[in-house]
Amino acid sequence: MTTGPKDLAVYARNLCKAYFVPVLKSGFLGGVRTLLSQEKRRVDAVNDVSFDIRPGEFVGYIGPNGAGKSTTVKMLTGILHPTSGEVLVDGLSPQRQRQDLARRIGVVFGQRTQLWWDLPTIDSFDILSAMYDVSASQYRSFLKKFDDLLGIGEFLDTPVRRLSLGQRMRAELAAALIHRPSILFLDEPTIGLDVVAKRRMREFLAAVNASREVTVLLTTHDLKDIEELCRRVMIVNHGSLIYDGTLESLRREVHLPTVLEVKYYGLPEGLGAGSFIGPGGEVSAAPPRDAWQIASVNADSRSVRVLFDRSQTPAPAVIAAMQALGEIRDVSLEEPAIDDIIRRILEAK
């Protein structure tokens, strides 16, 4: 069986979005003069972005503010029209078949509610179930299932405006899934949530995607979301896709050192930040081959932090070299933080 663009959850080719921002006129009849004016400024929000997402994937879409994440998501959901390029979502054109597509996708914008602000939460669900022609029995099982998974039962009678942010985001997620969409677009769903609420949200998202029936595209600034949920990550900067692959291969590609922290009973003599340790424990100022740099020495805790590349050297070899310098009380390993990896790749490209 061949798979074409129509079999993919998302098919995007050479997607571009340029804004022609009219230079606003002020003063008398400013609005009318702006309308008649030809003066425009071009802003490339998304520039030649191509990717495929297969059904069942969980993809993280990250990048700094203003990189073009939200613009891409808005083109995929039919909100914005691309300046050029091709896009199909679940085999449909988000622009030409927007209303049909709306029945197959769920959307959560972390910063913007889709619920009826002044009414009890249950009213929003009632309305959405009517809007998406959800049958009465399906609706009952939805309420039951989402009470089990997200605990929405506890605040169904509370007006949306009185919900805590954590409760509201749970309600938003449930609302986005009421019509059983095959693709879920999440734009910063964990923004502003506390640690407990974030964890709950992540567990839920993992469960939603567990059976691979729902494809998820997640944009976020919280890289822990990405680490815990996404098998694949796409990084966008200045409107261009600069990385698309698994998190593991991103770690390999970027090569940030792992940190080994060693605590001694007595701090060995002659160690300083910037010096190097060889495999036999020999200390040198210049970098010889097969040596690891010392990042810092802390006399108070009698600890030394040393950098090494995990893809080149197994951790025990480094520990052995450190052991040669003195008796070790404790060791700990720190993997390069995902934030640092991302920062590195954003700076490099």
Partner: peptide
């Protein structure tokens, strides 16, 4: 406010 976004994700005109 950009609120028109949520109008456009609904399956109606």
């Amino acid at each position: 406010r950009g609120d028109y976004d949520s109008i456009l994700v609904r399956p109606y005109p």
